[in-house]
Design a protein around this nucleic acid. Structure first.
Lengths: 198, 198, 198, 198
DNA sequence: GATGAATGAGGTTTCATTCAT
DNA sequence: CATGAATGAAACCTCATTCAT
């Protein structure tokens, strides 16, 4: 495994544990077992490390989310899959997710139109788009009913974000939310029962 | 207005805008119009400032949330009120909320049992307890139906957190979620329509 | 007891425990139970406190040393008394002595002709003078024999200083030295045994 | 000569002149001709500098003391050599000795079992052990007579400390004590004259 | 490709001292 | 007499970054 990859993995771990400002480049280098200067040979600066982590993690997440949803063929099942995938993913890739949850906010300084911000926004947009698609599919195949697709996609996205945040940041009092959240969403999205019974 | 209050207000603004690590004590002092040393006369250290902000903001938020809910008499309306209150509150107290969203994560270093962590956890617990109460009331008065009250309260708490986060941190592409979220929850919580129709 | 005395006693204790630079005026005030500003009402500045401690302690020490020696009527017994007094005194007034041992050195910045330095030197001179007097008396009364009175007085003074320092600063491995030192000195000072026997 | 050595030498000079607290890291760096930050690259912190000075100076002192004593073959001459060595050494290495005399006390905060304290104690112990050995040798070869070897070694150690302190800290009124101290000790330690004469 | 010594700007904090009350 | 809020200079230390090797 190349030095660059080692650095990225070490940095991911440290950033997730301690936060961006609190993990110094010297510590990253030492933990990764490379010289301090080596960091700056492979990356322009400290920002560059986190940017690469963001970029890699973001694209992996999106790819796997899409793959995971693609296995199901009704809209409702896809939405459920998205929620389940998210719990699974945040369990197995907790460090990448923690980085998003922890460092994310600090990257969004003021309202500046930074490239980081655009990248992050773009990921959110894609997640919302994926949910939108599944909702549309669900409406088409009769497994879902909802007022406004776009709005519902945003709400779902927020719910996913909130649930992930809670289970990673405050797991002590917050038991696994996934099944609860899935039940909640199924209830909210399923077509009116009476209509179906008639 | 005392110097201490001035410092707290200035620090709140700066922390919300730039984050904890990025707002220097020198800048806070200068912006507040006091000498640098004055900060450390009134607060033990930089942490002490954010702690006081947390404590004050947390208790105000909880008090107003309770008051806002108390105006309604069915469980469902209370839940709706909680969601609406949250949107309203995060619009008018965006700085305090931003501090919670931004600095929060960085306060939770590792799994250490820090007083900050306990304070933050305690707020979450109280919010969940409030929601729990309204859900119980709703089940009693027939306006709500749900699988597991505790679980649902946690899901609702996560949803509130997610929606608030999205609307403050990424407002550009995320239109006001409140009404969408309310509709979503109402759908998820309302008693099965058929039963009612029969 | 007046506030000024309280301050002096508290400062003595703290300076002895922690050193001059390490005991802050704020801590002295708090421990003494007075307001921070009160210190600077009674003393010109921090230096002023230690100066007053020095002055008081120095004159008390000299007075008691003289009194203690005066009880004996041969030179040798006076020297022994001086050594015994010193051990006794450093046990009962360890804080004042510690201040001399600890803060002393730091007061003697470079070779500047500071008033502190002159005061300290003057105490040393007086101790040496007292020893000188006893040695002379001892030679006159035949209990002491020595090469050079002035020189011997200086050696004795150094020995007293060294013994006191060791027993206060490194008591762990240095058992009570007084009796050993007295025997040592008696041996060094007593007239040649043969001469006496003849 | 490496930068680290330069820093140590500069710091030794400044600490000896002004004391530990009074010599600022900025001043040390400037005087040494290196950047302020360089200090903290080579040493953990300010304490770290003085610790290294202590360690180096302590081991040099002990080595040379041993070498200096080894040249003589009777116990009495070894003791004399120790006293002479000390005067010589404190004249040529006055800065290191001044550091011990000045900073020493401040390192011994309270009764804490700090590593500095242990190091300092260990040096004292070794000096006492060396004196002990010479006293034993002297008793064996008939050049020395004394009540209690251990006790006498401690007294001698205290005397050496006191004499060194006086001649370095208050040289103005205290002429070279070495010969006086040697005569004093010879007198105290030599075997009873009569026994010899008989 | 990789290193690590060196940097210096900037951060937090301490603290003796002042002064209006 | 006494206070304590306020000060600001100066301290120690951190750390991202550079650069000669």
């Amino acid at each position: 495994m190349g030095r660059k990859t080692t650095i990225i993995e070490t940095a991911t771990r440290l950033f997730a544990q301690k936060g961006f400002a609190e993990a110094s480049t010297a510590e990253i280098a030492e933990t990764a077992g490379v010289a301090h200067g080596t960091l700056f040979y492979h990356f322009k600066n400290k920002q560059g490390i986190i940017q690469e982590i963001f970029t890699r993690a973001g694209s992996v997440y999106l790819r796997e989310l899409r793959k995971s949803i693609a296995e199901y063929n009704t809209g409702m099942r896809q939405i459920e899959a998205a929620l389940r995938f998210n719990e699974e993913y945040s369990r197995h890739h907790s460090q990448e997710i923690l980085i998003f949850l922890r460092i994310f906010p600090d990257q969004l300084k003021g309202d500046a139109q930074s490239p980081e911000r655009e990248f992050i926004d773009s990921i959110q947009q894609q997640v919302i788009a994926i949910l939108h698609e599944s909702l549309s599919a669900g409406i088409a195949d009769g497994t879902i009913e909802c007022r406004d697709i776009e709005e519902t996609a945003c709400v779902l996205n927020s719910l996913i974000f909130g649930v992930t945040h809670m289970s990673l940041m405050a797991p002590r009092y917050t038991p696994s939310l996934s099944e609860g959240a899935i039940a909640f969403c199924r209830q909210a999205l399923q077509p009116s029962a009476c209509a179906g019974k008639k």
